[in-house]
Simulated assay, not measured.
Amino acid sequence: MPVFIKSFFEHFFPPRQLLIRQNGEVKHVVLAPWLQIFAVLLVLITLSWVSISSYRVYSQTTKISAIEQAKLDEQKLWQQQASKQQALHAQQAEQLAELEQKQALLQSMIESLPASISKDVLSEDELSSPFEEDQDEFHEPLVDEVPLDKHVHLSENAFAERYAQLNQHYQQNFALLEQQINLRHQAILAMLKGAGLESALEQHLALSDTSVAQGGPLDMFDETKIPSAFLAVADKLLQLNTLESFLSELPNTLPLPAAKYYISSNFGLRKDPMNNRRAFHKGVDLAGWHKTEIFAPADATVLRAGRNGGYGNFIELEHKNGLVTRFGHLNKINVKKGQTVNKHDVIGLMGSTGRSTSTHLHYEVLIDGEHVNPLKITKALSRVW
């Protein structure tokens, strides 16, 4: 074996001469075998070190690039999830705003219902805030240790379920409101038509469009967030309240307490009590005790108060919407021309002055100057009060 090694080195690393020419002189340097071996080993060690160092640098660079790419991918995924949750939050905020506007409109309509419609028909058990803030049904987007996809999924389902429940609740209440409003509206219109008060209603509607004493801070609903069907119900309620206001201005009662009179002569054709000839009676006669108090059947202004031929002591009241009431044969007049009287104010006392056979009240109602049957109007109005 030593002989083989010696032979190998002698074959590959024999002594070599290196000729160097400098300044016209030639010099030679003998490279011994051991020096050649040392040079080769030095080159090999250098190449090995460079290779290993390059590999390590490459490996580190690759790892750093992989880590940076993983961070970028993670950040991109987080941004996508955060954007998804932000979009979900914005959608829920919009839905919540819609529910709040529906609730505000419904609550306002309930408070505006006329006394003729009972609030008991509506279920108000869920008219509080649509979503309680101490529950995790609605919240700002959060990032924590809980997987984001799972967190959003659960929140979205909980919100959607609650939103559907409340939306159905509002749909039912608005439907009930619309039904009750329509029934009341139809009943009033049927009564007005039957009592011949269409023209009086037209006057009232015309006057309601004019400027009256109104005002207050502006607090509007965001109608863009309320379905048009709900707004239509609100408009119907406004129309109904106008009708109810009209009814409140009508003489819906006779001007005497029910227990203190009886009808002694009806409206229309009759035999005149003085000459027994056929005649038209433009009012009704309500007989009662002498000096029975006579009340104003509705708010009014006194047009006339004093003696008036066959009426005897006479009062004429002007009500709103073209209605006029007249009172004859009074024993005493308690008002004067131009005076404003309220419903149920005592305006006079029953008597038998003028063209009268005995103590009674002659009571007339006129609409736009035309006489109508007071009993017909009173009975019609009593059916809707």
Rank of each mutant, 00 (worst) to 15 (best):
E137L: 10
N252Q: 10
K27F: 13
R277Y: 00
I347N: 09
L243Q: 13
I110F: 04
R277E: 04
V57W: 06
S352A: 13
V365L: 14
H344M: 06
H362S: 03
N23K: 13
L148W: 07
N266L: 06
S228C: 01
P114T: 05
D209H: 05
D136A: 11
F327W: 04
W385A: 11
G310T: 14
V335W: 02
W49R: 10
Q91K: 14
L197D: 01
L154P: 01
I315R: 02
A158M: 08
K291H: 15
H153K: 14
Q60T: 05
A305Q: 01
A305L: 00
P130A: 03
A160D: 07
I5Y: 11
S112I: 00
K282Y: 12
D136T: 03
R304K: 14
S199K: 10
L330C: 03
P251Y: 01
H290D: 14
E364D: 15
F13L: 08
I226F: 09
E161R: 15
Y170N: 05
G348W: 06
L177G: 01
A258L: 10
E68K: 13
G215Y: 02
R162E: 14
L218S: 01
N321K: 01
I52E: 04
E370C: 01
S54I: 04
A305W: 03
K336W: 01
A296D: 01
K282W: 06
E249T: 11
E94V: 07
K271C: 02
L18A: 12
A97K: 15
L99H: 01
N373P: 03
L189I: 13
T357D: 13
Q214A: 12
V29G: 03
S53T: 11
L381R: 10
A195R: 02
P374R: 00
Q81N: 03
V324S: 00
D272H: 15
L286D: 06
L72I: 09
